[in-house]
């Protein structure tokens, strides 16, 4: 079944609010363990609680509108809207980014190697795969990572390990 953009957006809003609700409960759970005010009347727990209440209050009108949009009938022309594309290239790049950070952090893969592979992967994810682009991105990644690691280790004393 085709779903209209407005309903999709309303579902998105409700999803966001669900996440906010989880966050608010984390705030309240965390605030319960905080020490009682000692140096001034507010204490450590006041701000989390205030923000928790604030987030709930601000969520209400958004939730109200989203539910109303979900229940209302769509206008007849809604079906003509172009379908929403899934951002699959963005997902690929995000996956590459996660792998890159994990390789550096947990795998302790050398910086130059990890960066070259990452630039090649994400570059191809964005612009498409061809022999020429593979070579270009490998050179780009190699050049960039060599330059960065030279600057960081020799001048700025930052170590990637």
């Amino acid at each position: 079944m085709q779903i209209s953009r407005r309903k999709l957006r309303a579902l998105g809003d409700l999803g966001l609010l669900a996440a906010v609700a989880v966050g608010v409960s984390v705030l309240f759970i965390g605030a319960a363990d905080l020490p009682a005010p000692r140096f001034e009347p507010l204490g450590s727990a006041a701000m989390p609680k205030i923000l928790g209440v604030l987030l709930i209050l601000l969520s209400l009108p958004i939730a109200f509108r989203a539910i109303r949009n979900l229940l209302r009938r769509d206008p007849a022309d809604a079906k003509q809207e172009p379908p929403i594309q899934l951002p699959h290239r963005g997902v690929l790049v995000f996956g590459a980014l996660l792998a890159y950070a994990a390789a550096l952090d947990f795998g302790r893969v050398p910086f130059v190697l990890a960066t070259t592979v990452f630039v090649a992967l994400s570059g191809m994810a964005i612009s498409g795969i061809s022999v020429r682009s593979v070579l270009i991105y490998i050179f780009l990644g190699l050049g960039l990572s060599l330059a960065l690691s030279y600057i960081f280790t020799n001048f700025l004393y930052v170590r990637f390990a």
């Binding site: 795998g107 302790r108 893969v109 050398p110 190697l113 390990a161």
Partner: peptide, 16 residues
């Protein structure tokens, strides 16, 4: 040599 100072690190080094 730095990588081989722990089992996990050795693995990483081997992979590298």
């Amino acid at each position: 040599t730095k990588y081989s100072r722990g089992a996990r690190k050795t693995l990483a080094a081997a992979v590298a």
